[in-house]
Simulated scan of single mutants.
Amino acid sequence: MHSTTQNSKNKPGFWAHFAISLTIVGGMLAANFSSKAAESFSVEVIGTGKPVLMIPGLMSDARVWRPTAEALASDYQLHLISIAGFAGKPAIEGDLLPKVKQELLQYIAQHQLQRPAIVGHSLGAFMAFNLASSAPDSIGTIIAVDGLPYLAPVFSRSNDTTAQMMQGQAAFLRQQYQQMSTEQLTAMTAQGLFMQASSDAHQQLVLSMATASDPKATGQALYELLTTDLRAAVSAITSKVLLLGATGALSSDAERAQAQQLYQQQLAGIAHATLEFHPQARHFIMLDQPDWLTAKIATALKD
């Protein structure tokens, strides 16, 4: 798919900037839950009620979800996940996202969480789709915040892209990140900050989390995102899915239509899926439009 905007070949446009941004992309702690539940992630638990896992995106941690969780804590028990290697959390060796999935499913079983809802942002949304397609009987409502079953079409602008086609580029990116210094990772992230959030304060939060992230872990996660295509697998999901997209950084109606088509195609195989966009929000919707997002999550969790 290609934008029909005038002079599109001469300006970077939404998808180029989004590719940059993605490649750089009330209660007390519950006594019966471990604050370090697994090697690949840690957990903070607040609130009481129906369980909800909240998973952040690439180079982010639980801080992005805490205000949303606090707004929901009177009705839900929120499990705020922070993934190894991101935002100052110690990195692990080997595969990252497959281990996160395995250990999250173990965490759900160990603590006897009954069909918890999963709220995920970006990479966290991919993890939500991964969990629900791998264990459909164990996972409840999915709320994906600006994240997809397969990342690569964001680069290619076409859902015809396959994981096999992306293998070489993914391996190259992983190698680049393995050789990257913290300063280089920070500089790369800074290039795409305007796509991430509107306010300077929120942009600096995104940047500070990236600066504290491990470049090798980031590269491994990107490799796995680009070479893991869940579009066929998500047909196994039986629970309700809500995908919330952000179009606040788009410059034209054509680009907004292109984004909506790409997102909608990735939901085609899911029986009970809904797609909504916020026209002003940027990628970190929870930072840009917190009231709107909290209201959407609350409604979806009640249905």
Rank of each mutant, 00 (worst) to 15 (best):
M1I: 06
M1D: 03
H2P: 06
T5Q: 14
K9E: 10
K11P: 05
F14N: 09
F14P: 03
H17E: 10
I24F: 10
G26C: 09
M28E: 12
A30E: 08
S40P: 03
V45H: 04
I46T: 12
I46H: 12
G47L: 01
G49C: 02
M54H: 07
M54Y: 04
L58Y: 04
L72S: 01
L72I: 00
D75S: 10
Y76T: 00
H79N: 04
A91D: 01
E93S: 12
G94S: 00
G94R: 13
L96M: 11
K99N: 12
H111Q: 11
A117M: 00
F129I: 06
A132D: 00
A132N: 08
A135L: 09
I142D: 00
I143A: 01
I143L: 14
A144V: 05
D146C: 11
G147L: 05
L148P: 05
F155S: 03
R157D: 03
D160T: 14
D160K: 15
Q164V: 09
M166E: 05
Q169T: 11
F172M: 13
Q175W: 12
Q178A: 15
T186K: 12
Q191C: 06
F194T: 09
D200R: 15
Q203I: 07
Q203C: 10
V206P: 12
A210T: 14
D214P: 05
Q220I: 05
A221C: 15
E224P: 13
E224L: 05
L226Y: 15
T227Q: 01
T228W: 10
D229C: 07
V234L: 03
S235A: 15
T238C: 08
S239R: 07
L243R: 04
A246T: 07
A249V: 09
R256S: 10
G269K: 09
H272E: 05
E276D: 13
R282V: 08
H283V: 02
A298N: 14
A300E: 06
L301V: 03
K302F: 06
D303T: 06
